[in-house]
Amino acid sequence: MPSWISRAWKKGIVTTTYPVGAPTGEEIPPTGCPVGIEDAAAFRSAAAIAEPLCPTGAITPAGVDQGQCIRCTRCFRVGFGAGGAVESGNAAREGLIWISGTPPALRVEPAPLAPIGRSIHVFLMDVGSCNACNLEVLALANPYYDAARLGISFTNSPRHADVLAVVGVPTEPLVEPLRRTYDAMPAPKAVLAVGACAIDGGIFEGNPGLEVPVRTIVPVDLYVSGCPPPPLAVLDGILRLAGRNRVRNGGDR
């Protein structure tokens, strides 16, 4: 089909240079995490005003919990601003709490899946999401992100998977399937909690019939915050599980 070929040729290469290059403005949507107040005293006073505004209780004078933040932009009224959060994944839950505008000192890397670091098979498990996180994870397969160039592919069975990407807030009927899916995966394996719902229930925390958070059901190796996280944040999370993310390797694959 020469016409298909000519079309593909005309379209050119749209794939991001990430993780070799830095993410561009188009790739990081402006709804990053609330940052922008560097001074500790100013932060505390701004956070005290923002605290009652925050629908999920992510902002306290102690810091901004990226894991609970749903990027609703309400705190922007008191001086917070959007920041890029592509490389904010953390292996420790407490590490998602940012003090003022700076990433946390507690930056824990997961134990890398060394033997399988070059080829990673990801199984996506939805335990009660709004479908946005699912689509953002699957967007990694589209030509703009093309995770296959980094050896990352999606698999159709947990028995072939190295990484379990969990999205959504676990509903009661999906707790057991999640546990069994995790058990079905061969070791070494890792769990990626994608999005505010998977980390701590997000906006749905406290609804009846929900079992939050995911980490009480299966052990979580890395948290990727966002509502939903942009595809590059998920990509960074998967690469970090394999020990070859951009930050660790100084931009070099």
């Binding site: 159709n156 399937p177 069994r180």
Partner: peptide, 10 residues
């Protein structure tokens, strides 16, 4: 289902 990759949701 409910766990299947053919359908990206549960």
């Amino acid at each position: 289902g409910p766990v299947t990759m053919g359908v990206p949701e549960s």
